[in-house]
């Protein structure tokens, strides 16, 4: 039976996966993917609460916003990654430890 708990469980799984990816992976693109996972977990949460608790479409609209922002953020993030690659010829996260060029 699919209820709120199911959604939250999936959402939590997604969130944990995102966190894990962000912490464990050293590839910046992979970290961006982790961030996407976390955002999606949040969006799923909005949608689930909207359906089971609130009963209106507020949460859905918020989910749509999150998707748009996630796309924008992914575009910006990838831009940064390209620029970073031009500088360091690497997308390893530990190469970004310095504040200097």
């Amino acid at each position: 039976m699919i209820n709120l708990g199911t959604y939250l469980g999936i959402s939590f799984a997604l969130f944990i996966c995102g966190i894990f990816v962000m912490i464990a992976r050293k590839n910046i693109i992979a970290i961006l993917l982790g961030i996407e996972l976390i955002l999606n977990a949040a969006a799923l949460n909005f949608a689930a609460y909207s359906k089971f608790v609130n009963g209106n479409l507020d949460g859905h609209i918020m989910s749509l916003f999150i998707i748009v922002i996630a796309a924008a953020e992914a575009a910006v993030g990838l831009g940064i990654v390209i620029r970073f690659f031009q500088l360091r010829e690497s997308i390893h996260i530990d190469d970004a430890a310095s504040l200097q060029n």
Binding site: I23, K26, I31, I93, D94, A96, A97, S98, L99
Partner: peptide, 9 residues
């Protein structure tokens, strides 16, 4: 350290 993953953790 500048290691962003550590900060995050």
């Amino acid at each position: 350290s500048g290691k962003i993953q550590l900060y995050f953790m």
